[in-house]
């Protein structure tokens, strides 16, 4: 990584933070998914009415440790099984906002050509831009995770009188699945950016990337396919391999001519 590439990465970060519209959309999704949604779940669990029907439903939930209250068990299921899947939306969203604005946005504003006249090769520009999108996506994901964790723990502690430990699912999601998912998102957007003529167009097509995650969410809630550590680990490795393959192919195609078309 040389000085020029670092300068491009810094500039891309500044471009996002100084654009109020982009920065707001970068904040709203994590806020909704990682602060508001978990809080709603926790409060709902705590304030469940003593309805016999609801009680019957709760009795169906498997209780590994009978000494733990039913409230805490449900909260644990939500935090460790439901939230990780929701969490995956964040790296995709952050990566797509940044990648769309950094490739198509530069093309749209005619600044990409200027950058191409620099002594950076097309491949170096590509790597700098992917790196910027990836770093942003990982930063936003980490901050979202820490914020969610702080909020959920506080709520659980005050409402249910105990702390909840995140299990190994989270570790896999944070360290493996979300980095590879965000790389897939970035590469797909970059590939599309050769054709897309506006940032909006590029962002719209990025939305489709969320569909597989939505399917996972549905599967998780309905119990069709409950993610356990092994499934999660397998999925992560699959995604990482896909990300690497896509990246290599995109890097080969990345030429000046393709970009300025």
């Amino acid at each position: 990584m040389n000085q020029a590439m670092t300068a491009v990465i810094k500039k891309d970060f500044k471009g996002i933070t100084s654009n109020r519209r982009l920065f707001a959309s970068l904040l709203i999704v994590p806020l909704a998914l990682m602060i508001i949604l978990p809080s709603i779940f926790i409060f709902m669990i705590h304030f469940i009415p003593d309805d016999p029907d609801v009680q019957k439903l709760l009795d169906l939930i498997p209780r590994l440790d009978p000494s733990v209250s039913i409230e805490l068990t449900v909260a644990g299921l939500i935090v460790n099984y439901i939230l990780p899947v929701f969490f995956l939306i964040i790296p995709i969203m952050a990566a797509s906002i940044m990648a769309a604005s950094s490739f198509v946005g530069e093309k749209e504003k005619h600044t990409l050509e200027t950058l191409l006249y620099s002594p950076l090769s097309a491949g170096q520009i590509f790597r700098a831009k992917v790196m910027a999108s990836f770093l942003l996506s990982m930063t936003v994901s980490m901050i979202s995770f820490l914020a969610m964790f702080a909020v959920v723990e506080t709520e659980v502690f005050f409402l249910m009188g105990s702390l909840l430990l995140p299990d190994i699912n989270w570790l896999i999601v944070l360290l493996l699945l979300s980095p590879s998912v965000s790389l897939i998102a970035i590469t797909l957007i970059v590939r599309g950016s050769a054709k897309a003529q506006s940032v909006e167009e590029s962002q719209q097509s990025a939305v489709f990337l969320i569909i597989p995650v939505l399917l996972l969410i549905v599967g998780q809630f309905s119990g069709v396919m409950l993610l356990n550590v092994w499934i999660l680990l397998g999925l992560s490795i699959l995604c990482a391999a896909a990300a690497w393959l896509l990246m290599q192919r995109a890097l080969g195609k990345f030429t000046y001519e393709m970009l300025l078309r």
Binding site: T6, K109, E113, S118
Partner: peptide, 19 residues
């Protein structure tokens, strides 16, 4: 070959200098 609207004239030149 345009430059960045969100940066000042000076900052634009500094950016290209570092590139």
């Amino acid at each position: 070959a345009q430059m960045y609207d969100n940066l000042t004239g000076f900052d634009n030149l500094i950016f290209y200098a570092s590139v």
